[in-house]
Nucleic acid binder design. Structure first.
Lengths: 144, 144
DNA sequence: TTCTAATAGGATAATTTTGTCCGATTTAAA
DNA sequence: TTTAAATCGGACAAAATTATCCTATTAGAA
């Protein structure tokens, strides 16, 4: 559904948000360790998220990644997914046809539209803060 | 959502079914041309579909691919997807966690479950014959 | 029987995605 | 001011996916 890069990005952002709630700025090393992702690859993804103003990065000693409470409240998962995977999830035909729309639908067009809309709605309505909510009370886990 | 291979496979199977309705056995060349896919790559996918008893292949002159009416009625899209992409769509966590289930859910687990179920249901309930229905009356298109 | 049109299948190549490495830069603290 | 800890960024490498090519095999028809 999502690329690996996107999965790492979502997990990383969630972990950063969770720690930021406690006022903790976290390092790349800690993030990769806690979300179980390849460290150098995760670094690239974090650079991307930083450039897209999704997380804040601080260079130098005691640097790391963080995100403000206001930001994680406003930020929707769709923005993270979009920064990494683009709009490939929403766009595109289920059968891979270039031109497939309501006027010229492929055989499963309408069925895919519904499912894609549910996915888009979910991503657009879920904030990064919501992602941390379950983690705080131990109901959800970022790593087994 | 699906791999390219799977998209080609779905389009190819649909085209074969459509032509089989008219009693026409179709060649690889014709299929690739009509569904707008790379011919040699499509050959590999058709081999796979043939091995999985999804379409019938006939070698030699006047050979090609076909599928019986009974078969296309029974055959669900899920079987085609499964033959090519495996169960990667249904299975797996949205965030890429190895162990993510109702007991140990990731923060978006329940939301993904719903969407994946819709997708699975759609694939398991749509027959290959249904795919051709729209094509016959010109409402849907396999190629722009 | 021979020719021709077709799929089967193995080897290989190109492209994309995923992942690593290393030096440059930044910043806090000793 | 030096050192150490951290991100940044470019180059590179590995793996997976997508795609091509060529030969073998099959089978219908002349």
């Amino acid at each position: 559904m999502f690329s690996k890069a996107c999965e790492y990005g979502l997990r990383a952002a969630t972990y950063i948000a969770l720690q930021s709630l406690d006022g903790r700025r976290v390092s790349l090393k800690e993030i990769a360790d806690k979300i179980d992702s390849p460290i150098a690859f995760t670094a690239k993804i974090l650079q991307l998220l930083s450039k897209n103003n999704i997380v804040e990065s601080v260079k130098g000693a005691h640097g790391g990644f963080e995100i403000t409470r206001t930001k994680m409240d406003k930020l929707k998962l769709s923005e993270i997914v979009n920064a990494i995977d683009g709009d490939s999830i929403y766009a595109g035909c289920g059968l891979g046809l270039k031109e497939c729309n309501a006027n010229k639908p492929c055989p499963v067009h309408s069925k895919f539209v519904d499912i894609r809309n549910d996915l888009r709605e979910m991503l657009e309505n879920t904030s990064l803060y919501e992602m941390t909510a379950g983690l705080e009370v131990g109901l959800t886990f970022l790593k087994r």
